[in-house]
Design a protein around this nucleic acid. Structure first.
Lengths: 250, 250
DNA sequence: CGAGGGTTTGAAGTGCATCAAATAGTGTGG
DNA sequence: CCACACTATTTGATGCACTTCAAACCCTCG
Protein backbone atom coordinates (compact mmCIF):
# COMPACT_ATOMS: atom_id res chain seq x y z
CA UNK A 1 0.00 0.00 0.00
CA UNK A 2 1.63 3.20 -1.15
CA UNK A 3 0.09 5.55 1.33
CA UNK A 4 -0.38 9.26 0.86
CA UNK A 5 2.66 11.45 0.87
CA UNK A 6 1.51 14.51 2.65
CA UNK A 7 4.36 16.79 3.47
CA UNK A 8 7.98 17.65 2.96
CA UNK A 9 10.34 20.26 4.39
CA UNK A 10 9.52 21.86 7.68
CA UNK A 11 8.79 18.43 9.02
CA UNK A 12 12.08 18.48 10.88
CA UNK A 13 10.72 21.15 13.12
CA UNK A 14 7.58 19.25 13.91
CA UNK A 15 9.32 15.96 13.80
CA UNK A 16 11.54 16.20 16.75
CA UNK A 17 14.70 15.13 14.97
CA UNK A 18 15.83 18.33 16.49
CA UNK A 19 14.49 17.32 19.86
CA UNK A 20 16.53 14.11 20.01
CA UNK A 21 19.39 14.06 22.52
CA UNK A 22 21.49 12.39 19.85
CA UNK A 23 21.40 15.50 17.70
CA UNK A 24 21.68 18.13 20.34
CA UNK A 25 25.16 19.03 19.17
CA UNK A 26 23.92 19.95 15.71
CA UNK A 27 23.44 23.45 14.39
CA UNK A 28 20.27 24.82 12.91
CA UNK A 29 21.91 24.82 9.53
CA UNK A 30 22.09 21.03 9.74
CA UNK A 31 18.43 20.69 10.57
CA UNK A 32 17.48 23.09 7.82
CA UNK A 33 19.47 21.19 5.27
CA UNK A 34 17.85 17.96 6.45
CA UNK A 35 14.40 19.50 6.32
CA UNK A 36 14.79 20.28 2.65
CA UNK A 37 15.10 16.61 1.83
CA UNK A 38 12.82 15.25 4.52
CA UNK A 39 9.73 13.40 3.45
CA UNK A 40 6.89 12.31 5.70
CA UNK A 41 4.63 9.47 4.65
CA UNK A 42 1.74 7.57 6.14
CA UNK A 43 2.00 3.82 6.08
CA UNK A 44 -0.55 1.28 7.09
CA UNK A 45 -0.06 -1.91 9.01
CA UNK A 46 1.77 -4.59 7.10
CA UNK A 47 3.77 -2.23 4.90
CA UNK A 48 7.41 -3.16 4.49
CA UNK A 49 9.51 -0.03 4.82
CA UNK A 50 12.67 -1.69 3.55
CA UNK A 51 14.28 -5.09 3.41
CA UNK A 52 17.45 -6.38 4.95
CA UNK A 53 20.20 -5.99 2.38
CA UNK A 54 18.44 -3.29 0.36
CA UNK A 55 20.57 -0.41 -0.69
CA UNK A 56 20.03 2.37 1.82
CA UNK A 57 19.67 6.03 1.09
CA UNK A 58 17.56 7.14 4.02
CA UNK A 59 17.21 6.87 7.73
CA UNK A 60 13.86 7.30 9.40
CA UNK A 61 12.12 8.96 12.27
CA UNK A 62 8.89 7.49 13.60
CA UNK A 63 6.36 10.26 14.16
CA UNK A 64 3.51 7.91 14.97
CA UNK A 65 2.93 4.20 14.98
CA UNK A 66 5.08 1.14 15.53
CA UNK A 67 7.81 -0.45 13.49
CA UNK A 68 9.07 -3.98 13.80
CA UNK A 69 12.68 -4.67 12.84
CA UNK A 70 13.42 -8.24 11.83
CA UNK A 71 15.66 -10.55 9.91
CA UNK A 72 14.64 -13.52 7.86
CA UNK A 73 16.30 -16.73 6.75
CA UNK A 74 15.98 -18.30 3.35
CA UNK A 75 13.52 -20.85 4.65
CA UNK A 76 11.30 -18.04 5.89
CA UNK A 77 11.75 -18.08 9.64
CA UNK A 78 11.96 -14.64 11.16
CA UNK A 79 13.71 -13.18 14.15
CA UNK A 80 12.38 -9.95 15.59
CA UNK A 81 15.26 -7.62 16.36
CA UNK A 82 13.29 -4.85 18.01
CA UNK A 83 10.00 -3.05 18.02
CA UNK A 84 10.22 0.72 17.88
CA UNK A 85 7.57 3.18 19.03
CA UNK A 86 7.03 6.76 17.96
CA UNK A 87 9.94 9.05 18.72
CA UNK A 88 12.60 6.57 17.65
CA UNK A 89 15.06 6.84 14.79
CA UNK A 90 15.91 3.82 12.72
CA UNK A 91 18.49 2.63 10.24
CA UNK A 92 20.98 5.22 11.43
CA UNK A 93 23.76 2.73 11.72
CA UNK A 94 23.40 1.87 8.07
CA UNK A 95 26.09 4.43 7.38
CA UNK A 96 28.56 2.04 9.00
CA UNK A 97 27.23 -0.95 7.06
CA UNK A 98 28.20 -0.21 3.46
CA UNK A 99 24.84 1.46 2.92
CA UNK A 100 22.90 -1.75 3.16
CA UNK A 101 20.05 -2.00 5.63
CA UNK A 102 21.10 -4.36 8.41
CA UNK A 103 17.52 -5.54 9.01
CA UNK A 104 14.07 -5.36 7.49
CA UNK A 105 11.42 -2.98 8.82
CA UNK A 106 7.70 -3.57 8.85
CA UNK A 107 4.92 -1.27 9.98
CA UNK A 108 2.95 -3.06 12.67
CA UNK A 109 0.65 -0.20 13.57
CA UNK A 110 -0.49 2.55 11.22
CA UNK A 111 2.41 4.92 11.10
CA UNK A 112 3.70 8.24 10.00
CA UNK A 113 7.35 8.20 9.16
CA UNK A 114 9.83 10.80 8.04
CA UNK A 115 12.85 9.87 5.96
CA UNK A 116 16.10 11.81 5.78
CA UNK A 117 19.06 11.32 3.48
CA UNK A 118 21.81 9.27 5.07
CA UNK A 119 24.37 11.14 3.02
CA UNK A 120 23.73 14.37 4.92
CA UNK A 121 24.21 12.56 8.16
CA UNK A 122 27.44 11.08 6.92
CA UNK A 123 28.70 14.53 5.97
CA UNK A 124 27.77 15.87 9.35
CA UNK A 125 29.58 13.29 11.46
CA UNK A 126 32.70 13.81 9.37
CA UNK A 127 32.98 17.30 10.72
CA UNK A 128 30.94 17.37 13.90
CA UNK A 129 33.02 15.57 16.48
CA UNK A 130 30.47 16.06 19.23
CA UNK A 131 27.83 14.34 17.15
CA UNK A 132 30.22 11.47 16.59
CA UNK A 133 30.84 11.21 20.31
CA UNK A 134 27.12 11.27 21.05
CA UNK A 135 26.61 8.52 18.54
CA UNK A 136 29.33 6.54 20.25
CA UNK A 137 27.66 6.70 23.65
CA UNK A 138 24.34 6.01 22.11
CA UNK A 139 25.61 2.99 20.24
CA UNK A 140 27.48 1.78 23.26
CA UNK A 141 24.30 1.85 25.28
CA UNK A 142 22.50 0.04 22.51
CA UNK A 143 25.19 -2.59 22.41
CA UNK A 144 24.94 -3.06 26.14
CA UNK A 145 21.24 -3.70 25.70
CA UNK A 146 21.98 -6.37 23.14
CA UNK A 147 24.44 -8.02 25.48
CA UNK A 148 21.90 -7.95 28.23
CA UNK A 149 19.40 -9.51 25.90
CA UNK A 150 21.77 -12.37 25.24
CA UNK A 151 22.26 -12.79 28.96
CA UNK A 152 18.54 -12.76 29.61
CA UNK A 153 17.85 -15.37 27.02
CA UNK A 154 20.52 -17.53 28.59
CA UNK A 155 19.60 -17.30 32.26
CA UNK A 156 16.06 -16.03 32.59
CA UNK A 157 13.12 -18.30 31.92
CA UNK A 158 10.06 -17.09 30.05
CA UNK A 159 8.11 -15.73 33.05
CA UNK A 160 11.20 -13.90 34.32
CA UNK A 161 11.83 -12.35 30.91
CA UNK A 162 8.28 -11.07 30.85
CA UNK A 163 8.65 -9.66 34.36
CA UNK A 164 11.83 -7.91 33.29
CA UNK A 165 10.09 -6.50 30.23
CA UNK A 166 7.27 -5.14 32.38
CA UNK A 167 9.69 -3.53 34.81
CA UNK A 168 11.26 -1.57 31.99
CA UNK A 169 7.89 -0.08 31.17
CA UNK A 170 7.64 1.54 34.58
CA UNK A 171 8.93 5.10 34.93
CA UNK A 172 12.03 5.39 37.12
CA UNK A 173 11.66 5.66 40.88
CA UNK A 174 8.03 4.75 40.85
CA UNK A 175 6.87 3.59 44.26
CA UNK A 176 3.80 1.72 45.47
CA UNK A 177 1.03 0.45 43.17
CA UNK A 178 1.62 0.73 39.45
CA UNK A 179 -0.54 0.20 36.40
CA UNK A 180 1.23 -0.96 33.27
CA UNK A 181 -0.15 -0.99 29.78
CA UNK A 182 1.43 -3.28 27.25
CA UNK A 183 2.76 -1.05 24.48
CA UNK A 184 1.68 -3.49 21.78
CA UNK A 185 0.02 -6.82 21.07
CA UNK A 186 0.95 -9.78 23.19
CA UNK A 187 2.01 -11.60 20.05
CA UNK A 188 4.47 -8.79 19.35
CA UNK A 189 5.75 -8.74 22.90
CA UNK A 190 6.31 -12.46 22.60
CA UNK A 191 8.27 -11.96 19.38
CA UNK A 192 10.27 -9.17 20.98
CA UNK A 193 11.20 -11.49 23.84
CA UNK A 194 12.04 -14.36 21.53
CA UNK A 195 9.27 -16.72 22.49
CA UNK A 196 6.13 -18.17 20.92
CA UNK A 197 2.76 -16.51 21.57
CA UNK A 198 1.57 -19.68 23.30
CA UNK A 199 4.60 -19.66 25.55
CA UNK A 200 4.01 -16.00 26.31
CA UNK A 201 0.44 -16.64 27.31
CA UNK A 202 1.33 -19.52 29.61
CA UNK A 203 4.36 -17.74 31.03
CA UNK A 204 2.32 -14.66 31.81
CA UNK A 205 -0.19 -16.66 33.82
CA UNK A 206 2.65 -18.34 35.63
CA UNK A 207 4.10 -14.92 36.42
CA UNK A 208 0.71 -13.93 37.73
CA UNK A 209 0.48 -17.02 39.93
CA UNK A 210 3.98 -16.59 41.31
CA UNK A 211 4.02 -12.88 41.96
CA UNK A 212 0.37 -12.01 42.52
CA UNK A 213 0.21 -9.33 39.84
CA UNK A 214 -3.21 -8.58 38.36
CA UNK A 215 -3.87 -8.93 34.66
CA UNK A 216 -6.81 -7.59 32.69
CA UNK A 217 -6.16 -7.93 28.99
CA UNK A 218 -3.30 -5.61 28.14
CA UNK A 219 -3.36 -3.93 31.53
CA UNK A 220 -1.27 -5.14 34.42
CA UNK A 221 -1.39 -3.96 37.99
CA UNK A 222 1.25 -4.29 40.64
CA UNK A 223 0.86 -3.55 44.33
CA UNK A 224 4.53 -2.86 44.44
CA UNK A 225 7.44 -3.00 42.05
CA UNK A 226 9.28 -5.25 44.50
CA UNK A 227 6.96 -8.09 43.58
CA UNK A 228 8.47 -8.27 40.15
CA UNK A 229 12.00 -7.21 40.98
CA UNK A 230 12.42 -10.09 43.35
CA UNK A 231 11.11 -12.54 40.81
CA UNK A 232 12.88 -11.39 37.67
CA UNK A 233 16.02 -9.57 38.68
CA UNK A 234 17.32 -12.55 40.61
CA UNK A 235 18.32 -14.05 37.28
CA UNK A 236 20.22 -11.04 35.98
CA UNK A 237 23.68 -9.61 36.46
CA UNK A 238 22.48 -6.01 36.68
CA UNK A 239 20.63 -4.83 39.69
CA UNK A 240 17.24 -3.35 39.56
CA UNK A 241 16.74 0.06 38.19
CA UNK A 242 18.41 -1.11 34.97
CA UNK A 243 19.70 2.33 34.30
CA UNK A 244 18.56 3.88 31.02
CA UNK A 245 18.36 0.63 29.20
CA UNK A 246 14.87 1.37 28.00
CA UNK A 247 16.29 3.81 25.48
CA UNK A 248 17.08 2.51 22.06
CA UNK A 249 18.31 3.89 18.82
CA UNK A 250 20.16 2.71 15.73
CA UNK B 1 48.60 -14.46 42.01
CA UNK B 2 50.24 -11.08 41.42
CA UNK B 3 52.51 -12.00 38.61
CA UNK B 4 55.75 -10.29 37.73
CA UNK B 5 55.64 -6.82 36.31
CA UNK B 6 58.32 -6.81 33.74
CA UNK B 7 58.20 -3.78 31.63
CA UNK B 8 56.74 -0.35 31.06
CA UNK B 9 57.09 2.28 28.36
CA UNK B 10 58.18 1.23 24.92
CA UNK B 11 55.69 -1.58 25.15
CA UNK B 12 53.41 0.28 22.81
CA UNK B 13 55.89 -0.24 20.04
CA UNK B 14 56.15 -3.93 20.61
CA UNK B 15 52.57 -4.24 21.60
CA UNK B 16 50.85 -3.51 18.42
CA UNK B 17 48.44 -0.94 19.83
CA UNK B 18 49.95 1.01 17.05
CA UNK B 19 49.33 -1.81 14.64
CA UNK B 20 45.60 -1.94 15.29
CA UNK B 21 43.35 -0.69 12.51
CA UNK B 22 41.29 1.08 15.13
CA UNK B 23 44.17 3.41 15.94
CA UNK B 24 45.51 3.97 12.48
CA UNK B 25 44.34 7.58 12.57
CA UNK B 26 46.47 8.37 15.60
CA UNK B 27 49.71 10.31 15.57
CA UNK B 28 52.98 9.08 17.03
CA UNK B 29 52.63 11.61 19.78
CA UNK B 30 49.54 9.75 20.96
CA UNK B 31 51.34 6.42 21.05
CA UNK B 32 54.29 7.94 22.84
CA UNK B 33 52.10 9.46 25.47
CA UNK B 34 50.36 6.12 25.92
CA UNK B 35 53.66 4.30 26.13
CA UNK B 36 54.71 6.37 29.11
CA UNK B 37 51.85 5.04 31.17
CA UNK B 38 51.66 1.57 29.65
CA UNK B 39 52.28 -1.38 31.89
CA UNK B 40 52.71 -4.97 30.81
CA UNK B 41 52.08 -7.78 33.26
CA UNK B 42 52.07 -11.55 33.17
CA UNK B 43 49.03 -13.25 34.56
CA UNK B 44 48.42 -16.90 35.09
CA UNK B 45 45.29 -18.85 34.42
CA UNK B 46 42.47 -18.09 36.80
CA UNK B 47 43.50 -14.52 37.55
CA UNK B 48 40.67 -12.01 37.57
CA UNK B 49 41.76 -8.92 35.71
CA UNK B 50 38.81 -6.84 36.89
CA UNK B 51 35.24 -7.29 37.97
CA UNK B 52 32.03 -6.05 36.43
CA UNK B 53 31.18 -2.77 38.10
CA UNK B 54 34.71 -1.99 39.28
CA UNK B 55 35.84 1.52 38.74
CA UNK B 56 37.83 1.58 35.54
CA UNK B 57 41.03 3.45 34.88
CA UNK B 58 42.61 1.27 32.22
CA UNK B 59 41.92 -0.51 29.02
CA UNK B 60 43.95 -3.51 27.99
CA UNK B 61 45.73 -5.08 25.10
CA UNK B 62 46.30 -8.83 25.05
CA UNK B 63 49.85 -9.58 24.00
CA UNK B 64 49.59 -13.29 24.69
CA UNK B 65 47.06 -15.64 26.17
CA UNK B 66 43.30 -15.74 26.39
CA UNK B 67 40.81 -13.67 28.32
CA UNK B 68 37.25 -14.62 29.11
CA UNK B 69 34.73 -11.83 29.55
CA UNK B 70 31.71 -12.69 31.65
CA UNK B 71 28.91 -11.43 33.83
CA UNK B 72 27.64 -12.98 37.00
CA UNK B 73 24.34 -12.91 38.86
CA UNK B 74 23.99 -12.69 42.61
CA UNK B 75 23.26 -16.40 42.87
CA UNK B 76 26.53 -17.14 41.13
CA UNK B 77 25.52 -18.22 37.65
CA UNK B 78 27.76 -16.86 34.95
CA UNK B 79 27.26 -15.88 31.35
CA UNK B 80 30.29 -15.79 29.08
CA UNK B 81 30.20 -12.65 26.97
CA UNK B 82 33.23 -13.37 24.82
CA UNK B 83 36.61 -15.02 24.75
CA UNK B 84 39.41 -12.86 23.43
CA UNK B 85 42.70 -14.08 21.97
CA UNK B 86 46.02 -12.26 21.71
CA UNK B 87 45.87 -9.12 19.63
CA UNK B 88 42.57 -7.94 21.00
CA UNK B 89 41.84 -4.83 23.03
CA UNK B 90 39.38 -4.95 25.89
CA UNK B 91 37.38 -2.62 28.09
CA UNK B 92 37.64 0.16 25.54
CA UNK B 93 33.98 0.95 25.69
CA UNK B 94 34.24 1.59 29.40
CA UNK B 95 34.71 5.24 28.54
CA UNK B 96 31.07 5.30 27.50
CA UNK B 97 29.93 3.48 30.61
CA UNK B 98 30.59 5.96 33.41
CA UNK B 99 34.02 4.44 33.94
CA UNK B 100 32.67 1.20 35.29
CA UNK B 101 33.73 -2.05 33.69
CA UNK B 102 30.74 -3.49 31.84
CA UNK B 103 31.85 -7.09 32.42
CA UNK B 104 34.38 -9.11 34.40
CA UNK B 105 37.56 -10.43 32.82
CA UNK B 106 39.34 -13.63 33.71
CA UNK B 107 42.58 -15.03 32.37
CA UNK B 108 41.88 -18.47 30.96
CA UNK B 109 45.31 -19.12 29.50
CA UNK B 110 48.56 -17.74 30.84
CA UNK B 111 48.68 -14.24 29.52
CA UNK B 112 50.69 -11.12 29.03
CA UNK B 113 48.61 -8.01 29.12
CA UNK B 114 49.35 -4.34 28.69
CA UNK B 115 47.22 -1.71 30.35
CA UNK B 116 46.77 1.86 29.17
CA UNK B 117 45.04 4.76 30.86
CA UNK B 118 41.51 5.27 29.65
CA UNK B 119 41.80 8.98 30.32
CA UNK B 120 44.32 9.43 27.53
CA UNK B 121 42.02 7.64 25.15
CA UNK B 122 39.16 9.86 26.22
CA UNK B 123 41.24 12.94 25.54
CA UNK B 124 42.19 11.65 22.16
CA UNK B 125 38.72 10.93 20.87
CA UNK B 126 37.61 14.40 21.96
CA UNK B 127 39.89 15.90 19.38
CA UNK B 128 40.58 13.17 16.87
CA UNK B 129 37.43 12.88 14.82
CA UNK B 130 38.81 10.15 12.60
CA UNK B 131 39.48 8.00 15.64
CA UNK B 132 35.92 8.59 16.78
CA UNK B 133 34.64 7.55 13.37
CA UNK B 134 36.78 4.44 13.38
CA UNK B 135 35.46 3.56 16.78
CA UNK B 136 31.96 4.01 15.46
CA UNK B 137 32.43 1.53 12.62
CA UNK B 138 34.20 -0.81 14.93
CA UNK B 139 31.45 -0.68 17.51
CA UNK B 140 28.79 -0.97 14.86
CA UNK B 141 30.39 -4.16 13.61
CA UNK B 142 30.60 -5.44 17.15
CA UNK B 143 26.96 -4.66 17.70
CA UNK B 144 26.04 -6.49 14.54
CA UNK B 145 27.86 -9.52 15.89
CA UNK B 146 25.83 -9.36 19.06
CA UNK B 147 22.62 -9.15 17.09
CA UNK B 148 23.68 -12.11 15.05
CA UNK B 149 24.42 -13.98 18.22
CA UNK B 150 20.90 -13.37 19.44
CA UNK B 151 19.57 -14.57 16.13
CA UNK B 152 21.71 -17.69 16.22
CA UNK B 153 20.59 -18.59 19.68
CA UNK B 154 17.03 -18.23 18.55
CA UNK B 155 17.05 -20.19 15.32
CA UNK B 156 20.12 -22.40 15.21
CA UNK B 157 20.26 -25.59 17.22
CA UNK B 158 23.40 -26.64 19.06
CA UNK B 159 25.06 -28.57 16.20
CA UNK B 160 24.38 -25.72 13.79
CA UNK B 161 25.84 -23.16 16.17
CA UNK B 162 28.99 -25.23 16.41
CA UNK B 163 29.17 -25.52 12.64
CA UNK B 164 28.81 -21.78 12.34
CA UNK B 165 31.53 -21.25 14.92
CA UNK B 166 33.87 -23.53 12.98
CA UNK B 167 33.19 -21.75 9.72
CA UNK B 168 34.29 -18.48 11.25
CA UNK B 169 37.64 -20.01 12.08
CA UNK B 170 38.37 -20.64 8.42
CA UNK B 171 40.27 -17.95 6.52
CA UNK B 172 38.19 -16.21 3.84
CA UNK B 173 37.90 -17.73 0.39
CA UNK B 174 39.42 -21.00 1.44
CA UNK B 175 38.60 -23.78 -1.01
CA UNK B 176 38.75 -27.55 -0.80
CA UNK B 177 39.90 -29.52 2.27
CA UNK B 178 40.49 -27.51 5.44
CA UNK B 179 41.96 -28.31 8.82
CA UNK B 180 40.58 -26.38 11.76
CA UNK B 181 42.08 -26.16 15.20
CA UNK B 182 39.84 -25.18 18.05
CA UNK B 183 41.29 -21.97 19.47
CA UNK B 184 40.57 -23.06 23.04
CA UNK B 185 39.15 -25.78 25.26
CA UNK B 186 35.90 -27.38 24.26
CA UNK B 187 34.46 -26.30 27.59
CA UNK B 188 35.27 -22.70 26.70
CA UNK B 189 33.85 -23.01 23.22
CA UNK B 190 30.69 -24.38 24.80
CA UNK B 191 30.51 -21.40 27.16
CA UNK B 192 31.14 -19.03 24.28
CA UNK B 193 28.24 -20.56 22.38
CA UNK B 194 25.96 -20.52 25.39
CA UNK B 195 25.64 -24.24 25.92
CA UNK B 196 26.73 -26.82 28.51
CA UNK B 197 29.92 -28.84 27.90
CA UNK B 198 27.84 -32.02 27.77
CA UNK B 199 25.60 -30.52 25.14
CA UNK B 200 28.63 -29.37 23.19
CA UNK B 201 30.10 -32.84 23.19
CA UNK B 202 26.90 -34.46 22.01
CA UNK B 203 26.18 -31.74 19.48
CA UNK B 204 29.64 -32.04 18.00
CA UNK B 205 29.22 -35.75 17.40
CA UNK B 206 25.86 -35.09 15.87
CA UNK B 207 27.47 -32.51 13.60
CA UNK B 208 30.03 -35.11 12.65
CA UNK B 209 27.37 -37.69 11.87
CA UNK B 210 25.31 -35.28 9.80
CA UNK B 211 28.04 -33.59 7.80
CA UNK B 212 30.79 -36.16 7.66
CA UNK B 213 33.48 -33.91 9.12
CA UNK B 214 36.43 -35.62 10.81
CA UNK B 215 37.27 -34.94 14.44
CA UNK B 216 40.48 -35.78 16.27
CA UNK B 217 40.54 -34.06 19.65
CA UNK B 218 40.75 -30.35 19.00
CA UNK B 219 41.42 -30.80 15.31
CA UNK B 220 38.65 -30.89 12.76
CA UNK B 221 38.95 -31.71 9.07
CA UNK B 222 36.59 -30.83 6.30
CA UNK B 223 36.70 -32.12 2.75
CA UNK B 224 34.97 -28.98 1.70
CA UNK B 225 33.57 -25.89 3.37
CA UNK B 226 30.24 -26.55 1.65
CA UNK B 227 29.65 -29.46 3.99
CA UNK B 228 29.23 -27.11 6.89
CA UNK B 229 27.78 -24.13 5.08
CA UNK B 230 24.84 -26.17 3.93
CA UNK B 231 24.22 -27.49 7.39
CA UNK B 232 24.65 -24.35 9.47
CA UNK B 233 23.98 -21.37 7.28
CA UNK B 234 20.50 -22.62 6.40
CA UNK B 235 19.38 -21.38 9.80
CA UNK B 236 20.80 -17.88 9.48
CA UNK B 237 19.73 -14.65 7.85
CA UNK B 238 23.21 -13.81 6.53
CA UNK B 239 24.63 -15.77 3.69
CA UNK B 240 27.86 -17.58 3.91
CA UNK B 241 31.04 -15.72 3.97
CA UNK B 242 29.78 -13.83 7.04
CA UNK B 243 31.77 -10.80 6.10
CA UNK B 244 34.31 -9.69 8.70
CA UNK B 245 32.29 -10.85 11.62
CA UNK B 246 35.20 -12.70 13.11
CA UNK B 247 36.68 -9.40 14.21
CA UNK B 248 35.85 -8.18 17.66
CA UNK B 249 36.81 -5.32 19.85
CA UNK B 250 35.31 -3.35 22.70
C1' DC C 1 -24.00 -10.33 13.13
C1' DG C 2 -20.24 -12.47 11.14
C1' DA C 3 -15.24 -12.60 9.74
C1' DG C 4 -10.76 -12.53 11.12
C1' DG C 5 -7.10 -11.78 14.04
C1' DG C 6 -5.49 -12.06 18.63
C1' DT C 7 -5.29 -15.05 22.69
C1' DT C 8 -5.78 -19.02 25.41
C1' DT C 9 -5.79 -23.97 26.31
C1' DG C 10 -4.69 -28.81 25.54
C1' DA C 11 -1.75 -32.64 24.13
C1' DA C 12 2.41 -34.29 22.48
C1' DG C 13 7.22 -33.88 21.04
C1' DT C 14 12.03 -32.08 21.13
C1' DG C 15 16.17 -30.17 22.62
C1' DC C 16 18.86 -28.86 26.03
C1' DA C 17 20.04 -28.97 31.06
C1' DT C 18 21.16 -31.52 34.92
C1' DC C 19 23.03 -35.11 37.70
C1' DA C 20 26.03 -38.92 37.91
C1' DA C 21 29.77 -41.48 36.59
C1' DA C 22 33.18 -43.32 33.51
C1' DT C 23 37.15 -42.26 30.52
C1' DA C 24 40.81 -39.67 28.38
C1' DG C 25 44.32 -36.37 28.71
C1' DT C 26 47.71 -33.33 30.92
C1' DG C 27 51.02 -31.63 34.02
C1' DT C 28 53.55 -32.56 38.37
C1' DG C 29 56.79 -34.30 41.53
C1' DG C 30 59.38 -38.11 42.65
C1' DC D 1 60.19 -41.89 32.86
C1' DC D 2 56.35 -43.27 35.72
C1' DA D 3 52.51 -42.76 38.92
C1' DC D 4 49.37 -39.63 40.80
C1' DA D 5 46.25 -35.81 40.81
C1' DC D 6 43.53 -33.08 38.54
C1' DT D 7 41.04 -31.40 34.68
C1' DA D 8 38.77 -31.96 30.33
C1' DT D 9 35.70 -34.72 27.78
C1' DT D 10 32.43 -38.17 26.98
C1' DT D 11 28.41 -41.06 27.97
C1' DG D 12 24.11 -42.41 30.18
C1' DA D 13 19.70 -41.50 32.39
C1' DT D 14 16.25 -38.36 33.53
C1' DG D 15 13.65 -34.00 33.86
C1' DC D 16 12.01 -29.63 32.43
C1' DA D 17 11.05 -25.70 29.42
C1' DC D 18 9.77 -24.40 25.43
C1' DT D 19 7.91 -25.54 20.83
C1' DT D 20 4.61 -27.34 17.79
C1' DC D 21 0.18 -28.64 16.20
C1' DA D 22 -4.65 -28.37 16.95
C1' DA D 23 -8.64 -26.33 18.40
C1' DA D 24 -11.48 -23.39 21.08
C1' DC D 25 -12.41 -18.85 22.64
C1' DC D 26 -12.73 -13.96 22.62
C1' DC D 27 -12.81 -9.49 20.93
C1' DT D 28 -13.02 -5.98 17.63
C1' DC D 29 -14.52 -3.90 13.68
C1' DG D 30 -16.72 -3.60 9.42
Amino acid sequence: MQDCIYTAAESVERSGLKGLPLFKACQDSFFQKMAKRALTQKHSKGKILFLHGDEARYFYFIQKGLVRLFRETLDGSQVTVDILPAGQVLALRTIFEDDLYPYSAEIVENAEITSYPLSYLKDEIQTNNTLALNMLSSMSRCKRRKEQEIEHREIQNAPQRIGCFLLRLIPQNKEGPVTIHLPYDKTLVAARLGMQPETFSRALSKLKRETGIKIKGATIELDTVQQLVQFSCAACSSEFPCKDLQQREF
